[in-house]
């Protein structure tokens, strides 16, 4: 790895880490969802500081080129995150449905009580 590329990787990764911290700090990203991204940026930081780690991993996994291995790992990571996000969206969909239904039943109850109230007033 050339020193220039290593420096770029380091700077890019630090910006990425800072961005995650800023988002969490400003309540734009919950700590729960920041964890996989923090994990990813720490992993990239390790690779940027000690490129040998990538070579050792390549040896273990028997991949010919280091960059291919990095791409495969990143692609799997993104796929996993997308799947988890779909599960989270499904869960929220269910919660919104429940909330909508409860809201409608409450609104019906309020309407009924208002009508009763009106009738009571006119009877008096």
């Amino acid at each position: 790895m050339s020193p220039l590329f290593q420096t770029l990787l380091l700077v890019g990764d630090i910006i990425f880490l800072l961005l995650i911290f800023v988002l969490v700090k400003r309540n734009r990203l919950s700590v729960r969802f920041s964890l996989p991204w923090l994990g990813l940026s720490v992993g990239l930081l390790i690779l940027a500081i000690w490129p040998e780690v990538a070579k050792i991993l390549r040896g273990i996994l028997q991949v010919e080129v280091v960059s291919n291995m990095v791409f495969i790992i990143l692609f799997c990571f993104v796929l996993l995150v997308l799947l988890i996000l779909c599960a989270v969206v499904s869960d929220y969909n269910d919660r919104i449905k429940r909330l909508t239904q409860t809201n409608a039943i409450l609104e019906h109850r309020v309407r009924q009580l208002e009508q009763q109230n009106m009738q009571n007033k006119t009877n008096k």
Partner: peptide, 13 residues
């Protein structure tokens, strides 16, 4: 006598 859903849930919801 009706319920008024504030969001469209589809027939099932």
């Amino acid at each position: 006598n009706y319920l008024d859903l504030p969001l469209n849930l589809g027939i099932g919801g």
